[in-house]
Amino acid sequence: MPTVRIPSVLRKHTDGAAKVTAAGGNVGEVLRAVTADHPGLEEQLFDGDSVRGFINVYVDDEDIRYVSGLDTPVERDSEVALMPAVAGGDG
């Protein structure tokens, strides 16, 4: 099953787990499976039907906004990562 990485700020909703598994063929299905298992995440992740603006979602490191959004396909061994947007570095 695909794994989903949970950022530290949201782990209180997953009993501290940094990674959870969830079934689904695309990002939307996987995230809905995650919120079904961990209802506290629902409001944190979604604003209606879409993912909240300051949360970036990646499938195998690629930002889903540039793939197919919540329809982005997820393979059985894919990693879906959720990350808060942060200001970039300035070396």
Partner: peptide, 25 residues
């Protein structure tokens, strides 16, 4: 990330996200 709040995300104004074909972490 642990030190960040989810609603204090920041996207710099200089960045034009439309010029990107993809963004990979």
């Amino acid at each position: 990330y642990g030190l960040r709040n989810l609603d204090e995300g920041y996207v710099p104004e200089v960045l034009d996200v439309d010029v990107l074909d993809s963004r990979i972490k």
